[in-house]
Design a protein around this nucleic acid. Structure first.
Lengths: 109, 109
DNA sequence: AGTCTTTATCGTAATATTGCAATATTAAGT
DNA sequence: ACTTAATATTGCAATATTACGATAAAGACT
């Protein structure tokens, strides 16, 4: 085995898991945090910022993009990557929802 | 290679990535969502709820516990697993923080 | 056209994850 | 002590992820 059995779970569960999984790596957290504080978002700057080789960073960016967490814009020679605000909001709402429901519940442990 | 280079990132980045990663699997999302809506949280019920074999579920529970997302309480013969509210809140705050900062910024893409 | 710069892709090695059958462990009930 | 029930651990096969060197692709510049 080794492959996740996605077909046994709901669309929603798979979809949210995919987004969350994309952020489940320190390099990708670092990328998002960098994009958050910077005004122009050039790929090359990200490569310089991270302690990883250029192909590795490129791969991480691809995964973030694939999960819908960032968007890429061709800017002449370079590429400008930005956080997709809506995706982050989706995650925020997901956790806010869980938190709210937990507060209405008495936890047994 | 194949191993994440955690030593090149900050403690915070590694720590949040670890929590997020633990949720980045539909089975573990399903477990958390199940624990959220149910009043007693017996391991056996989770096994029955999920479309996975008992050892697999046990492993997922272990990962969630290891990441601090759930707590386990021995309840006689069975084990009661509950969501750790504080962990979820931490995640909620993390995403709320990003969202808030993004709103103060003009995104270029 | 040739060159430089920037980013992506390919190929591959190392490691991690997923999933399960078999087995072990632990506590309860008899 | 024996048996049953619930959960964990072990061992292993299949697959995925991470990382990077080498190379390709695409646009800018001369």
């Amino acid at each position: 085995m080794g492959a996740t059995k996605t077909d046994h779970f709901t669309e929603k569960q798979n979809s949210i898991a995919k987004m969350i999984k994309a952020l489940g790596h320190p390099a990708r957290i670092a990328i998002v945090e960098y994009l958050m504080k910077v005004d122009d978002c050039i790929c090359g700057d990200i490569v310089n910022e991270l302690p990883l080789a250029q192909p590795t960073v490129s791969q991480h960016l691809k995964e973030l993009k694939n999960a819908g967490l960032i968007k890429g814009n061709v800017e002449g020679n370079a590429i400008c990557y930005c956080i997709d605000e809506k995706a982050i909001e989706k995650l925020q709402h997901y956790f806010t929802g869980i938190s709210a429901k937990l507060k209405l519940k008495k936890n047994c442990c």
